[in-house]
Simulated assay, not measured.
Amino acid sequence: MTKSPVIAAIDAGCGFTKFSKLRPGQHADIEVFPSLTDIVFHDSRCSRLRAPRRNALIPFGTHLVEVGPDIEAALGDAVYHLQAEGFAATDDYRACVAGALAFIEEPFIDMLALTVPMRERDALAPQIRDWLSRPVRTAANASVTVARVEVVPQATASAIEWLDSPELDKTQVSLVLVAGFGSLDWALYRGRDLEPLAGGTEYHGAANLLRTVDDRIGQGAPSGDGRLDAIDQALRHGKPVRASGQLHDLQLHWPWIHGRARRMLGGIAQALTDLPTPQTVWLAGGGAAYFLQAAEGLFHRQAVHVAAEPMYACVRGMCLYGKRCLMADLDALRA
């Protein structure tokens, strides 16, 4: 019996790496780990000095790169910063992608879809395809072979769910905003066509807001970005957070967040001046909660929709995109 094809989707973002694998007819589970890395030299025993971790050790030349859900335990008390502009062109990005491939646990992948920022896609796609044209080492004695690679802009991947909506007709223009950790990806689409009328990337996202809140309550203490997840959770759930020896009510910062988010989206709104006016706005990305009020204010004449699970909209869209590409290939072979 022929084994069903494996479709994989990896969204290695500045804050978190999200990934999933799918076989036709099966449910696709999504997993996630921070986009942080730790270098472990071959002659180092540091990986054995701490409790076992659910991480992968990816071979990179003369050293290993540790990535995974327990990466913060590996980094310990180090002051570290999450990724920023240009991340998709770095070895850290490749390590996160290789780590996701290790956790997917498939030696052969028929279709792999990856996302990168809209602005970087044309430059990065050939480099990523060249890298993945050879088996990717995921452990000392393990590698993954990828038969086909598709590099998709974040906005396009996040738009697929919305563009499949029965509410849309072929003339409707939609603006897709992806509020990621390190960037704001955007694109304008007509109907269900995945070729954008216009698009781009602004390299400031939710991290820009969270860092400023952290600076305000930490009074300039060098905390790195390690506390940003705690700041994020406290803001979302209405809980105080401790910093500089006292509890801080972060709800007081929401008016500033909304104002700053509006200014951040203002540049995108300005770029749309000479373009077709969107009838709808689709908001996705892990930072969607911070930009929703700003989007509703700036685009008050349009209906603003938020993805059901904004952080995973990219991965779900890529799974669907990969499945369609693979099925089209199989149909062409049968013809």
Rank of each mutant, 00 (worst) to 15 (best):
M1G: 15
T2F: 12
A9G: 10
I10Y: 01
A12F: 08
A12I: 13
G13K: 04
K18C: 00
K18M: 07
S20H: 04
H27F: 06
I30C: 00
I30D: 00
I30L: 09
I30M: 07
L36H: 08
I39Q: 12
V40I: 15
C46M: 12
R50P: 00
R53L: 15
N55G: 10
A56Y: 02
L57V: 00
I58V: 14
I58Q: 12
P59S: 08
F60K: 05
L64P: 03
L64Y: 13
V65C: 11
V65D: 03
P69G: 05
I71T: 10
A74G: 13
L75F: 11
L75Q: 14
G76I: 11
G76C: 09
D77Y: 09
L82Y: 15
Q83I: 09
A89K: 04
T90N: 05
D91G: 07
R94W: 14
A95C: 06
A98Y: 03
G99C: 06
L101Y: 05
E106R: 12
I109M: 09
M111T: 12
L112C: 03
L114I: 11
E120I: 00
R121W: 02
A123T: 13
L124I: 06
L124Q: 08
A125Y: 08
Q127A: 15
R134K: 15
P135G: 06
R137W: 07
A147K: 14
V149E: 04
V149A: 10
E150A: 15
A157G: 02
A157D: 05
L168H: 12
Q172N: 01
V173R: 11
L175D: 03
V176T: 13
V176M: 13
G180P: 02
D185I: 07
P196A: 07
A198P: 01
H204M: 12
G205R: 11
A207C: 05
L209T: 08
V213H: 01
D214T: 04
D215A: 13
D215G: 11
G218E: 02
Q219G: 07
A221S: 09
S223H: 13
G224L: 03
D229V: 14
D229Y: 12
A230P: 00
Q233T: 10
Q233E: 12
A234I: 03
H237E: 12
G238E: 09
V241F: 08
S244N: 11
S244F: 06
Q246R: 15
H248I: 08
Q251G: 15
Q251E: 14
W254Q: 09
H258S: 09
R262Y: 02
G266D: 09
G267F: 05
G267T: 11
L272A: 12
D274V: 07
L275N: 08
T277P: 00
W282R: 03
L283T: 04
A288K: 03
A289T: 04
Y290M: 01
F291W: 10
A295H: 08
E296N: 03
L298M: 04
H300Y: 09
Q302K: 05
A303I: 04
H305P: 00
H305W: 07
A308H: 14
A308C: 05
P310Q: 08
Y312T: 06
A313R: 02
C319H: 02
R324H: 12
C325A: 15
D329H: 09
A335C: 10
